[in-house]
């Protein structure tokens, strides 16, 4: 499971996170929604230590880091192994083939043999429906395919949690449904998944629980359907208004 406790973060005088706590259980999907620029990406980056934070702590399984944990600490590195991240822009390695993108870290970090890592990578590519793309460079793939390679790359480390930053933003809108079902499938294997998004429809479709993020704080949290049907915060009602769907409206299909 992933647990964030009272995370605070400022950029200079701009206080972006004002004490954010959130827990994601194994096998469940939490969607964090909030408008652009509200600090969702910053929160994710704090969780795996890409961004240092002023106060609070993060736990993934038995590994924890706290504010002030140095950049090069071993626990931070181990936490990152446990907590995969799928970046908004995927950040595939353009100089490596799809297969090598997935094989690199298991060999270098987990010390797996190359054969084992390759076998595992091919299995993951099959699951992602990309077995024919193993040898090509990432730039030759569509956005959706690149995203699935990024997911496979993260899964190859056998993490217990997975972070998604705006998984629908770089995709054709029609792909949204597929990504949602892929994420659901992953949580079915016991992963704790946190998705940050500003896409209400996607959040509703893909998550078990919903956290509404507003002005540096989580203002509302609960089971997705319940929160959608009965919004408590002004922030969420505001989001609905902008997203152009009703609180009780069914997602357009």
């Amino acid at each position: 499971m992933i647990r964030a406790i009272d995370i605070r973060k400022s950029f200079g005088t701009l206080e972006v996170l004002k004490g954010v706590s959130l827990a994601v259980d194994a096998g469940s999907i939490v969607a964090m929604i909030g408008p652009s620029g509200s600090g969702k990406t910053t929160f994710l980056r704090c969780l795996n230590g890409l961004e240092s934070f002023g106060a609070g702590s993060v736990e993934v399984d038995s590994i924890s880091i706290a504010a002030g944990t140095p950049d090069f600490s071993e626990s931070l590195r181990l936490l990152r192994v446990k907590l995969g991240m799928v970046f908004q822009q995927f950040q595939l390695f353009p100089h490596l083939s799809v297969l090598e993108n997935i094989v690199l870290a298991p060999v270098r970090v987990l010390g797996k043999s190359r054969e084992e890592a390759v076998e595992n990578a091919q299995e993951l590519l099959r699951r992602m429906g990309l077995d024919s793309k193993a040898g090509v460079r990432p730039r030759e793939l569509s956005g959706g395919q690149q995203q699935r390679v990024a997911i496979a790359r993260a899964l190859a480390m056998k993490p217990s949690g997975l972070l998604f930053d705006e998984p629908t933003s770089a995709l054709d809108p029609r792909m949204t449904v597929e990504v949602a079902s892929l994420i659901r499938e992953l949580s079915g294997h016991g992963l704790a998944i946190l998705v940050v998004t500003h896409d209400m429809n996607f959040a509703r479709r893909a998550s078990d629980r919903l956290a509404v993020f507003h002005q540096g704080l989580i203002v509302e949290e609960g089971p997705t359907a319940q929160v959608f049907d009965n919004p408590q915060s002004d922030a969420l009602r505001e989001l609905f208004a902008h997203a152009d769907i009703g609180a009780s409206g069914s997602p357009p299909g």
Binding site: F72, G84, F87, Q91, F93
Partner: peptide, 13 residues
């Protein structure tokens, strides 16, 4: 982002 992607996979700098 490339450095971050490497770090996020648990690789050292």
């Amino acid at each position: 982002g490339q450095m971050e992607a490497g770090l996020a996979l648990g690789m050292t700098r």
